[in-house]
Design a protein around this nucleic acid. Structure first.
Length: 916
RNA sequence: GGGUUUAUAGCUCAGUUGGUUAGAGCGCUACAUUGACAUUGUAGAGGUCAGAAGUUCGAAUCUUCUUAGACCCACCA
C-alpha cells in the first residue's frame, strides 16, 4: 500500500464514485459477463423485477428496505456467475397519483381542478408531477446502491407497457372474461370514481341502529343503520323456514313512506342467507344500494321475480329525484334525519340503539363509500376460461398449491409459508373485479362506442368495439366513434409487471427471464398485487410470474407505529445516508428481522451499522498494513480466476481455527442467502468479523507474525461475503487492494476449497480462549491494572502439549510476564486460580491475596456447579433418556458431566487448602 | 364473528425441523487508552422464555386453554 487509508471510513467520499464505476462497468446489465465465468453462453438467468414505486412523491424507508433485499439477492447471484437482471421501474399509480396532485392543486387555491383544468389540462399537471417524482425516485434508488439495469428501465404507463395492457384487455374480452355490466359498485363521491373491494379501508365508528316498521299495518319490523336508503327498498327478505315465512310471496304497498310522495311496493322474498335468529329475522332489501341486496335482486330476477331497483342516492352523494320530492337534492345525512323524524312522528320507530359499525371508506380519497348501481367493466373470476376448463380463481389457487395443471415446476413458493394461507383465503372470497375507474390518470379503457347515425338506420348492432388498436372510425359501419371515458384500475397494469417489463411474450428478454426468479413484497400487498400477477401470468402463459415470493414485514418507527404522513414520523432515507452512509443503513435494515415479521427502525441501529462498517474498514486497514510490513511491498495477493484465492496453509493452531471458522461462515452465509434468511447471514457475518477475527485472530496475528498469506485470504473472502450487504465499503477496500481494474461486484462468490479436518481444533482453541478470558477475569476481580504484567502457573494435565506450544498466545493475550506450565503442580502459596476443563490456572498475587475473598469466590463457583453436576447425573442415570435420546446427545451429556465433575473436584481441593 | 400473528435480559430482537447451565446488538456497571479502530478494548451485572395444564426420557420450542397486543378478512341487517 502506498498511501495511508484514513482512520475512519467516510462513506460520502466513496459512494457516488463507486456507484458510477459500477454503472460505467456495464455489469448492471445481465449481458456483461465476468471474465472468470467458464461458460458465458450458458449462464443461468436470474431475474428480479423491482416492485415499481408509485410516482406519488419520494421514497421512504420501506422502499429502502425493499431495495436492500433485492440488491442483496441480485449481488449474491451475480457473484455466483448468474446472468442477473434486476429490472427497475416505477408505477403511475392511477388513483393515488391523481388524488395527490388534485390535493396539491386544491391546497394551492384551486376549487375544483377537474372542472377548472379539464381532462387534458389536469393530465398535463399530473404528468409533470409524475415525471418529477420519477426523477427523484430513480436517483434515490441509485443512492441505495441498487445494482439495477437502468437500460431496461420501465414505467407502467409508458408506451410499451400500455400496448400490452390493451392487448391483454382485448384478449380477456374475447375470452369473455372481461364484461361490461350494470352492478352495484363502490363509489367515492369525493373522488367521483369507483374503487375495487381491495381499495377500501374500513373504519370503526359509532352509529345508530334503528328498528322500525314501514307502516302501521306492516307486520315485520326491520332494522337499519341507513334509514334514508329505505326510501329505495323494493323487498323484504326473510328466511324461507323462518318466523316470517307465512308472508313470503306477498306484496305490501306502502303509501307515501317518509312523506316521499311516492309508493313503496315491498315483496316479501325468501333467502337462505337471512338469519332467522338474528335481530328481527328480516331484512329490508335496498337493491340499488347494497351489494348483497343487489345479489338478491339478481337471484330473484333469475327466478322470474323482478323486484326492481330504485336508486335514491346519486353520484353526487345527494338524494335523487326517485327518493321523492321532499328529499331530492338533500345530503344523505339530512335525509336520514328527516326519515327518522318522520318514523318517530308516525309512531313507527320501535327502537334506537347505539352500535359500533365498521364502514368502508375510500383509501385514497378518504370519504365514505356509497354503494351505487352503474355500468362498469369487470373481470369475471369465476367463469371458465375457454379451452382451459378452469376459472381465473382456480388458476390463482393452483399456482401456489399444486402448481398450474398440477405441475410442481409451475408453482410459486411463498416464503414464509404462512402467507400462502392468507392469499388462498383471499382468493376464495374473491368477487368479480371492477376494473374501470372514472379518474383520468391511467390507461384508458380500450373500447370505442359507435355513435354513427348510419348504423342506427340500418339497425345494426355495433354498439361498441373492443380493440387493442387506436380507432378512428367504427370498423363495422364507418361511423363516428368515441373512446370510453374511463381508465383502468392501477392493479390491472401492475399485475402485468413481471412480463410487461420484459416486453411481452415475443421479446427475447421474456424468453430468457420469464418466469422471473424471485419477487419480494410487503405482506400488505400479497392479495392486492401478488394475486393479480399470478392471475395474468397463469391466464396468458399458463405459467407463474415468479418462482419464489418472499414476503417481508413492514417497517415501523421506534415506538412500533407505522410510518405515516399524519404522524409526521417519517424518516428520509437520504438523510440517514448522508449522516451514516448507505452501507450502515442497509445493514440496519437487514439485521434483527425475522422473515415476514415487522421490524422497528431507529437510529441506534443505524449507528451500530455505521460502527460495524467502520470496524470492517479498520480491520482491513490493519490487515493490509500487516501484509505490507511482512512482505515488504504492496501485496498483490495470489489471484486465480480474477481474485479467487487458494486457501493458504495453516501454520498454527490459530490459523487452523480461523480458517475453519471462515469455512463455516462461507457455508452458513451461502445457505442462509439461498433460503432468504437475510438476518441470519448478516448476524453470522458480524459475529465472525468482530468476535472471531478482530478480537482474537488479529490480536494473535500481532503476536505470532507471518500471517501475510492467511490475512490476504481472509480479507479477500470476507469482503466478498460482506459485499451484498455493504457494497460500498467493501468495494472501496477492494479497490485499495487490487487497484481499479477489478470490481468486487463481479468477483466470484467464495466456495470452500478444502475442508481440512484437524480433529479438535476448535475445542483446543476454545480452551485457549477460556484460559485467556479466565486470567483477564481474575485480573479484573483483583483490580490488577490491565497494563501490569502478572505471572501465571498452569497445571495442564493432558493439555500440556497444547499449552506449551501456544504459550506465546497466552502471554500476549493475557499480558503475562511469566507463564510456567507443568503437567501437574499444586497451587502455589499466595496465588488465586480457576479451572477450565482439567486445566488449573494459578495467578501469582505476590502475597496480596485476600484469603476470605478467594474462599468466597470458590464457594460461589461450587454452588453454581454442584446442582449442575447433580442434574447431569440424574439425567444419565435415567434409562429412558439413555435409551431414547440420540447417541450423540448422550455422549455430549457424558462429556459435560465428566468435565463438570473434574472441575468440582479441583474446586473442592482448592477450597480444602484454603480452609486448612 | 372467522383467520393470521406476537408475548424471551432495561430497550430492540434472534433462537433453523424438541437435547444450551437460554443468546446478540444497544443500554448499564467497573476498568483501560500513543500505532487497525473511542465509530475502541477488557471484564461484569441482568431472564422462573406472558400464565396454566398437557404430550415427552427431555419443552422457550409441540398441543389445549387463559391473559394482553397487532394485523387481515367478513353481507349479520
Amino acid at each position: 500500500m502506498n498511501k495511508e487509508l484514513p482512520k475512519a471510513y467516510e462513506p460520502q467520499q466513496y459512494e457516488d464514485a463507486i456507484y458510477k464505476r459500477w454503472e460505467d462497468s456495464g455489469y448492471f446489465t445481465p449481458e456483461a459477463c465476468p471474465p472468470w465465468v467458464d461458460n458465458p453462453d450458458s449462464r443461468e438467468p436470474y431475474s428480479i423485477m423491482m416492485p415499481p414505486p408509485n410516482v406519488t412523491g419520494v421514497l421512504h424507508l420501506g422502499h429502502a428496505l425493499e431495495n436492500t433485499l433485492m440488491d442483496v439477492m441480485a449481488r449474491y447471484q451475480r457473484m455466483n456467475g448468474k446472468k442477473v437482471l434486476l429490472l427497475p421501474g416505477t408505477d403511475h399509480a392511477a388513483v393515488a397519483t391523481q388524488a395527490r396532485v388534485e390535493k396539491n392543486l386544491v391546497e394551492a387555491g384551486m376549487k375544483n381542478p377537474r372542472l377548472e383544468l379539464g381532462r387534458e389540462g389536469l393530465l398535463e399537471k399530473i404528468r409533470e408531477y409524475a415525471e418529477q417524482s420519477k426523477t427523484t425516485i430513480l436517483s434515490q434508488i441509485k443512492k441505495m446502491g441498487t445494482s439495477a439495469d437502468w437500460s431496461r428501465l420501465a414505467y407502467t404507463f409508458d408506451e410499451e407497457r400500455s400496448k400490452i395492457v390493451n392487448i391483454v384487455f382485448k384478449k380477456m374480452y374475447d375470452d369473455g372474461l372481461i364484461y361490461r355490466g350494470y352492478r352495484v359498485v363502490n363509489w367515492s363521491v369525493k373522488g367521483q370514481s369507483t374503487s375495487s373491494d381491495d381499495e377500501l379501508a374500513y373504519i370503526e365508528r359509532k352509529s345508530k341502529l334503528y328498528t322500525f316498521k314501514y307502516s302501521e299495518s306492516f307486520p315485520i319490523p326491520i332494522a337499519t343503520t341507513r334509514p334514508e336508503t329505505k326510501l329505495g327498498d323494493t323487498a323484504v327478505a326473510v328466511h324461507p323456514e323462518g318466523r316470517w315465512k307465512e308472508y313470503v310471496g306477498q306484496e305490501f304497498v306502502i303509501e307515501n313512506f317518509g312523506q316521499a310522495g311516492h309508493t313503496l311496493r315491498l315483496k316479501i322474498i325468501a333467502d337462505e342467507n337471512v338469519d332467522d335468529s338474528f335481530g328481527t329475522g328480516a331484512l329490508g332489501v335496498t337493491t340499488a344500494h347494497s351489494p348483497i341486496d343487489f345479489e338478491m335482486y339478481l337471484k330473484q330476477k333469475a327466478l322470474g321475480n323482478d323486484i326492481g331497483l330504485i336508486q335514491v342516492i346519486g353520484k353526487d352523494g345527494l338524494m335523487t329525484k326517485e327518493a321523492g320530492t321532499k328529499y331530492e337534492g338533500k345530503t344523505v345525512e339530512e335525509a336520514r334525519e328527516q326519515v327518522v323524524d318522520w318514523l318517530r312522528a308516525e309512531g313507527l320507530l320501535i327502537e334506537e340503539q347505539e352500535i359500533d359499525q365498521s364502514v368502508a371508506t375510500s383509501d385514497r380519497f378518504g370519504d365514505i363509500i356509497e354503494s351505487i348501481p352503474m355500468t362498469q367493466w369487470f373481470v369475471d373470476v369465476n367463469k371458465e376460461i375457454p379451452g382451459r376448463g378452469k376459472s381465473l380463481k382456480e388458476l390463482m389457487r393452483e399456482a401456489v398449491t399444486i402448481g398450474l395443471d398440477g405441475n410442481a415446476k409451475k408453482k410459486t413458493i411463498v416464503n414464509p409459508e404462512r402467507f400462502e394461507k392468507s392469499y388462498l383465503a383471499w382468493v376464495d372470497n374473491l368477487y368479480d373485479w371492477c376494473i374501470s375507474r372514472q379518474i383520468w390518470w391511467g390507461h384508458r379503457v380500450p373500447v370505442w362506442y359507435c355513435q354513427g347515425a348510419k348504423n342506427k338506420e340500418q339497425g345494426t348492432t355495433c354498439q361498441y368495439v373492443v380493440t387493442s388498436e387506436k380507432l378512428k372510425a367504427c370498423p363495422e359501419c364507418g361511423g363516428n366513434i368515441a373512446q370510453d371515458e374511463d381508465t383502468l384500475d392501477t392493479w390491472f397494469s401492475s399485475g402485468m409487471w413481471p412480463f410487461a417489463t420484459l416486453g411481452g411474450p415475443e421479446h427475447k428478454d421474456f424468453k430468457t427471464f420469464f418466469p422471473t426468479s424471485w419477487m419480494q413484497m410487503g405482506y400488505e400487498i400479497v392479495s392486492l398485487w401478488m394475486a393479480r400477477m399470478i392471475l395474468f401470468s397463469a391466464y396468458l402463459f399458463n405459467d407463474i410470474p415468479f418462482k419464489d415470493a418472499y414476503v417481508h414485514g413492514i417497517l415501523r418507527d421506534k415506538d412500533g407505529r407505522k410510518f405515516s404522513k399524519s404522524l409526521k414520523n417519517g424518516i428520509d432515507p437520504l438523510d440517514v445516508i448522508k449522516e451514516y452512509g448507505t452501507d450502515a443503513l442497509r445493514f440496519s435494515l437487514m439485521v434483527g428481522v425475522a422473515p415476514g415479521n415487522d421490524s422497528r427502525f431507529y437510529m441506534e441501529k443505524v449507528e451500530a451499522g455505521r460502527n460495524l462498517v467502520n470496524k470492517l474498514w479498520n480491520m482491513s486497514r490493519f490487515m493490509l498494513m500487516t501484509v505490507d510490513k511482512e512482505q515488504g511491498t504492496m501485496n498483490k495477493p495470489v489471484r486465480r480466476r480474477g481474485g479467487d484465492q487458494v486457501r493458504p496453509e495453516a501454520k498454527t493452531l490459530a490459523d487452523q481455527w480461523i480458517l475453519k471458522k471462515l469455512d463455516t461462515l462461507v457455508t452458513g452465509v451461502t445457505k442462509n442467502l439461498d433460503s432468504f434468511d437475510f438476518s441470519y447471514a448478516a448476524e453470522s457475518l458480524r459475529d465472525f468479523t468482530w468476535n472471531d477475527l478482530a478480537d482474537w485472530y488479529l490480536e494473535i496475528a500481532k503476536i505470532e507474525g507471518g500471517k501475510a498469506e492467511v490475512l490476504n485470504y481472509i480479507l479477500n473472502t470476507l469482503l466478498k461475503l460482506w459485499h451484498p450487504y455493504t457494497p460500498f465499503v467493501t468495494e472501496a477496500i477492494w479497490q485499495e487492494v487490487y487497484g481499479e481494474e477489478q470490481l468486487l461486484m463481479v468477483a466470484p462468490w467464495p466456495t470452500i476449497q478444502r475442508s481440512e479436518d484437524v480433529i479438535g481444533t476448535e475445542e483446543q482453541f476454545e480452551l485457549m480462549k477460556r484460559i485467556v478470558t479466565g486470567v483477564r477475569n481474575l485480573r479484573s476481580e483483583y483490580n490488577i491494572e490491565p497494563a501490569k504484567k502478572v505471572a501465571v502457573t498452569i497445571s495442564a494435565g493432558k493439555q500440556i502439549e497444547l499449552l506449551q506450544k501456544n504459550v506465546e498466545i497466552l502471554k500476549g493475550m493475557a499480558r503475562l510476564e511469566n507463564c510456567t506450565i507443568e503437567k501437574t503442580i499444586a497451587k502455589p502459596d499466595g496465588a488465586v486460580g480457576f479451572i477450565e476443563s482439567e486445566v488449573e490456572v494459578f495467578m501469582d498475587l505476590s502475597g496480596s491475596v485476600d484469603l476470605e475473598k478467594e474462599k468466597e469466590r470458590i464457594q460461589k463457583e461450587i454452588a453454581l456447579i454442584e446442582p449442575y453436576v447433580i442434574s447431569l447425573e440424574k439425567k444419565l442415570a435415567n434409562d429412558e433418556f439413555v435409551n431414547n435420546a440420540p447417541a450423540a446427545v448422550v455422549e455430549g451429556e457424558k462429556k459435560k458431566l465428566e468435565e463438570a465433575r473434574e472441575k468440582l473436584k479441583k474446586l473442592q481441593e482448592q477450597l480444602g487448602v484454603l480452609t486448612k
